[in-house]
Nucleic acid binder design. Structure first.
Lengths: 240, 240
DNA sequence: CGTGCGATTGAGTTGGTTCAAGGCCAGTGG
DNA sequence: CCACTGGCCTTGAACCAACTCAATCGCACG
C-alpha cells in the first residue's frame, strides 16, 4: 500500500504544504497567518488509515486542520448501514464554525493515512479568520451539493459529480493536475459516499471508462474532458 | 386553502410567538433579547406560498427570522429536477452563520404563506448570539441527517424520519401536540425533500396509514407511537 | 358548472440491489 | 522461491424497490 512516493501526497509543483496552499487559495494569507500555520504544523499528529479521529458526541478541544491524507465525516445507522457525509482533504478544518459547542456533531474517520494538527486560533489573525470563514462556507456548499447528488442524481451522475468535486478541491491544495489526481479510495468508500452499493459503483466506473470519460490506472484518475463532464452534471467549471 | 384558523399557525397553548418560543427553547432568553425580538417582529414581511424569498447567488443584507409558515432551501438541477435541502420553520434563521458572505448559498422558497423579519443582530445580545449559534448547530445536524436519509434509508424510513424531525422541531416552537401537528405540504413537496416521486410518496403514506403508524386527516398528522417510530428509524426520542 | 390542482390507482418498466463466485495482487511466512 | 492469505475488484443472474406513464377522482374556488 505504501509506495515510495504516494501520489496523493505529492504536490504537483513543490511549494507550500498542501494545507497552507488550500487556505491561501481561499483568502490571501499574510506573513503572520503563514507563521502561525508553520508553527502549528510542527505539532502534527499522524493517523493510520481507517482510524477514528473524533467520535460523534465526544468532546473536542478545538478545530483541527488536515495536513495530508483523506478523511471523512461519517454517520452510522442503527443497523450498520454507513453514509459518508463529506470528505475532508488537506487544508480542510474539522470542527470549524461550531464555536462553543464542545461536542462533535459527527464522527470523523481517516480513509488513508493522514496527518492533522490543531488549527491556529482565528482570533490570532484576521486573514486566517477570513480563510476559516470561507472554508466553512465552502463546507456548507459541499453538504448542500451532497444532498442534491443523493436526492436527485443517477448513479453515474453521482460519481461524476463527486469526482469533479474532488478535482476542484484537490486543485486548491495543489494536489491535482488540470485533468486528474490520485484517488486513494476503495469502491466501497465511494459507495458509502454516493449512497450506492460497491458492486454498482464498480459497474458505473466501468461504464465511465468505456465511454472514455475517465481513465483509472491504479489510484491515478484522469478526467478526459473536464468542461464537458461539468456540463453533463450541471456543475460550474472551476480551476485547473 | 385559507381556513379561518390555519392549523399550522395555531399555537397549541397560547403564549409567546412561535419563533420566539423556539429560540427560547434553544437558549434561555433574557429581557433584552425578548425586547429586541419583539421590536424586530413588528417589521414583519409577508410572503404568499411558493414565493422565492432569496435566490442563490443573490446578495442578502442580513439574516432573516421565520415568524410563521413553512419555507425551504431548494436546489434546482440544470434539467429541472428539484431537491429540497432543508425545511425552514418558525424560529429558524435564513443566512445565519455565514457572517460576511453577502451572497446566499441557496435559494429559499416559501411552501405556505409565511412571514419573516430581519433577525436582530447577535452583537446586541449575548443570549441571542448563543441562541443563534445553537440554531446554526441544529441546522447543520439537520443537513447531515438529510444526507443520511437520502443516502441510506428506504422510502418508508425517509418519510418517517422526516415526519419525526418535523414533530421535534415544531414542538420547540409550540406548534406540535405530543403526537401530531399540522403538515401543510403537498406530496409533491415531500417527494422533492425525500428524493422520491410524488406517486411513491403517496403509496408510502398509504402504507404507513394501513400499518397504523400515522393518521392523516386533511393537513392534520398524528403519529401513533412516537417512541416506537423513533426506534424504527434509529432516531433519538426528543421532546413532546 | 367548469377549471385546476392535488391525491389516488393500475400496469408495465428499470435502475440499482443482492447473492455468490471468481480473479488479481501485495504482503507474509515457510 | 513459492504457497497462502486477505483485501479489493470484477462478473453473472435473479430480484425488487422505486419510477414512468396515464387515467381517474375529489374538492375548493371562481
Amino acid at each position: 500500500m505504501n509506495r515510495a512516493f504516494p501520489l496523493h501526497r505529492a504536490p504537483v509543483g513543490f511549494g507550500p504544504a498542501p494545507a497552507v496552499r488550500r487556505l491561501a487559495a481561499l483568502h490571501r494569507l499574510d506573513e503572520r497567518a503563514r507563521e502561525l500555520l508553520d508553527r502549528a504544523v510542527e505539532r502534527r499528529r499522524l493517523f493510520p488509515a481507517r482510524r477514528e479521529v473524533v467520535r460523534e458526541g465526544q468532546p473536542v478541544d478545538g478545530p483541527l486542520l488536515i495536513l495530508s491524507g483523506w478523511a471523512a465525516r461519517v454517520r452510522h445507522l442503527h443497523d450498520g448501514r454507513r453514509q459518508l457525509l463529506s470528505f475532508l482533504l488537506p487544508g480542510d478544518l474539522i470542527g470549524n464554525c461550531r464555536q462553543r459547542s464542545a461536542v462533535s456533531v459527527s464522527t470523523v474517520v481517516t480513509l488513508t493515512e493522514a496527518a492533522t494538527c490543531a488549527a491556529p486560533p482565528a482570533s490570532a489573525s484576521p486573514a486566517l479568520a477570513e480563510a476559516y470563514a470561507l472554508s466553512a462556507a465552502a463546507e456548507e456548499a459541499q453538504l448542500l451539493q451532497q444532498i442534491a447528488r443523493l436526492g436527485r442524481m443517477s448513479a453515474e451522475e453521482r460519481l461524476l459529480d463527486l469526482l469533479l468535486e474532488f478535482r476542484e478541491r484537490l486543485d486548491q491544495a495543489g494536489l491535482a493536475a488540470p485533468d486528474g489526481f490520485a484517488l486513494p479510495l476503495t469502491q466501497e468508500t465511494l459507495a458509502d459516499a454516493t449512497g450506492l452499493t460497491s458492486v454498482h459503483v464498480n459497474r458505473m466506473l466501468q461504464q465511465l471508462r468505456r465511454q472514455g470519460d475517465i481513465v483509472l490506472k491504479g489510484s491515478g484518475l484522469t478526467l478526459r474532458d473536464v468542461k464537458h463532464l461539468c456540463d453533463r452534471v450541471g456543475r460550474a467549471v472551476v480551476g485547473g
